[in-house]
Design a protein around this nucleic acid. Structure first.
Lengths: 135, 135
DNA sequence: AGTGCTAGTCTCTTTTTGAGACCAACAACC
DNA sequence: GGTTGTTGGTCTCAAAAAGAGACTAGCACT
């Protein structure tokens, strides 16, 4: 009943906000996975080439095995990466990016590039904000 | 000492992974804010036009006031949005997107558009994954 | 016989998030 | 002049998520 209850997103898709749950709004449903603390990092690595579990763990030193397992499974569930088990001894598991994953990573890499280019500006904004908080 | 300890990101910036903490790696430092559950939603709204606190709360029905306050303060701290207090009675607060915010939103909106375009494919992948889990 | 590698899982603790009450100042209504 | 509503928050407590680290099984190498 709010006259602003219906809003058009920049994606061009109307998004009924009075009925906004995670499964209904594409932005929330898709982004809630990508937005995980480790997801973009893993996607960035797998966009280059396939990696094995242990490699990823070593490349991202401060992720726990538990969260690496979970992040990989979530990304696999959404169709961004593939999991392939090789019957070596001990068995090894290789993760690789799917076509869907690559198509997501194309726009996503632009955001990552922005982050690299504007990291200094963001850090400067933080310093300024924190200084004004003290006064 | 790992021969893969140094990796080049697609952003073109070398990222020393043996020294990878949140403050050192631009991707992690910047993305960890954007990746919040509510951040992209708020950015999407503020990219259209300025909004007041109460408007945002009504537009995103299932965010708690606590998280809206925190998300807005985090986005403001990183320099993406501006907070302006008007001395009306009761005082009103308007949030608007800064230039930095708009420059971030340009690539980010592409990802959001991808989410809208590929929501069906992601949901299909989930159904397939969940089905194969049961078997 | 002992050590190490694989890709995880299980448990416990700490951090983050969510739900909801509470706040002060003023305006409008009755 | 007392009640109600509106503003943009904060505070507390419960629930959910994340981090730390021990533990597993099967096999290879020494």
């Amino acid at each position: 009943m709010d006259n602003a209850a219906r809003v058009t997103t920049l994606a061009g898709e109307p998004c009924d906000m009075s009925n906004w749950d995670a499964g209904n709004c594409p932005v929330r449903d898709v982004m809630n996975q990508i937005a995980g603390k480790w997801s973009t990092l893993i996607l960035e690595l797998l966009a280059q080439r396939p990696y094995r579990f242990g490699e990823l763990r070593r490349l991202v030193p401060d992720i726990s095995q538990r969260m690496l397992t979970q992040t990989l499974r979530d990304l696999q569930r959404d169709g961004y990466i593939d999991r392939q088990v090789f019957p070596t001894k001990p068995p090894s598991v290789e993760y690789s990016m799917t076509e869907l994953g690559h198509s997501l990573f194309e726009p996503l890499s632009k955001v990552l590039a922005w982050a690299g280019d504007n990291h200094a500006a963001v850090k400067a904004a933080r310093v300024k904000f924190d200084a004004s908080e003290l006064g």
